[in-house]
Write a protein that binds this DNA or RNA. Structure first.
Lengths: 218, 218
DNA sequence: TGTACATCAGTGAACGCGCGTTCACTGATGTAC
DNA sequence: TGTACATCAGTGAACGCGCGTTCACTGATGTAC
């Protein structure tokens, strides 16, 4: 299988879009054997090129992995932003949807998720990678802002704290139970249900019951 | 450095306690370069023996890693149980302490934590490993039981759900911010504070305010 | 439109290296009597 | 207490293998005129 800009017809001496193909290869191999389970040579073989070819596009294996993580964060940020949809039709509905999207991403793209959160890719060395990661978190942060804005000013918790709490909870559930691969633990309920209940209880603890939210909605 | 049962004096043709030494080597190397960052030969070298020696004690690298994870869960379970101390002097105090112990373990033993939760060691193939993991969770579960028992019977949430929520939150914070190594993200507060606030808000959401708890304590 | 040339993105052979694993071996330890 | 022997837990040499990386190369593509 080949991944060329011009579809699968790209052939011949020049691959056409080897960089993309290597990223896809890495994702495929990570999904199979984990982020440590592939080599530069593996990726080349998977893409159908000689072992020297990847060097035209990536300095080394780590650079390839970092690029995978960056793309992962970008797709993640896009998915989250689309799901949040600026809080429409109302903040509570959108917030719930956001959490489900987070879990769905971890399940649908375990390879990306691994590269982003578990492969030990250092965030601070690559500017684009760090920015992509921050963009993703910014969506959560913005959602938390809108959420605390529902509350009376004197009772508002810091939005950053709320965002971090929800992020941690969701990431925890995703890592422990919500993965598409074999490392996950079994659970007597759906991860989505577990998350939804947690968020409801947490928001109630903030004084943001469904009643308050419903009242604000009108 | 050698790790023998008889202290550091073990020498000579027979190592004395190579199995322990290999586990320590693995921990050291995992802490340095992550769970994927060491080889069987590395471990042997670190322990000061020939590359063939580890085969007397472990089938292969995976078996060594699984043993590390098992020991990690056992130490984890012990630490958690000791910290929980059957809910003394009162359930809320002990519960808070339990969370702090969880985070402290992840920070103090990042290598164990990696092997347990991130190395992709399959839980279901090794009976002892699975049991150790279940023993650790059982402590959390028991604590959640005592916690919900503080509440009036008609308002009690399932203890299992509470345990899973707290586990997820704590694991999420530990993975994202609370690690002793370089992969952690920076945070404008201590992970412990973040966790404490989350748990307080969550419990309040369950209807278990500090007032209720204090009332029960008397 | 054709041609000459520069650049790009691959090839494939080669290298040194370290890994996993096996093997016959051997020094150290434990035990029966 | 001494001796003979079995077992244990190491050695060290060897092997085949695949990896990372470099290199001169070459086919394909793009561009100036």
């Amino acid at each position: 299988m080949r991944w060329g800009k011009r579809g699968h017809a790209a052939r011949g001496y020049h691959h056409g879009n080897l960089k993309e193909a290597l990223v896809h290869a890495a994702l495929e191999l990570i999904a199979e054997k984990g982020p440590a389970g592939f080599t530069f040579a593996d990726a080349a073989r998977w893409a159908g090129v000689s072992p020297a070819a990847p060097y035209r596009h990536f300095r080394d294996r780590d650079a390839l992995l970092a690029d995978v993580a960056r793309r992962g964060f970008e797709e993640f940020a896009t998915a989250l932003a689309k799901s949040w949809d600026e809080g429409k039709p109302d903040v509570m509905t959108a917030f719930d949807r956001l959490g489900k999207t987070y879990l769905a991403f971890a399940k649908r793209e375990p390879a990306y998720y691994s590269a982003m959160f578990e492969a030990g890719v250092p965030l601070d060395t690559d500017r684009e990678l760090r920015e992509a990661s921050e963009t993703a978190f910014a969506v959560l942060r913005a959602a938390a802002e809108k959420l605390v804005a529902l509350m009376p000013p004197q009772a508002r918790p810091p939005a950053l704290m709320v965002a971090l709490h929800v992020w941690s909870m969701t990431h925890g559930i995703a890592s422990l139970f919500g993965r598409g691969d074999a490392a996950r633990r079994t659970l007597p309920m759906q991860p989505e249900e577990l998350l939804e209940a947690a968020v409801l209880i947490y928001l109630r603890g903030l004084g943001l019951g469904l009643d308050t939210a419903a009242a604000k909605r009108r």
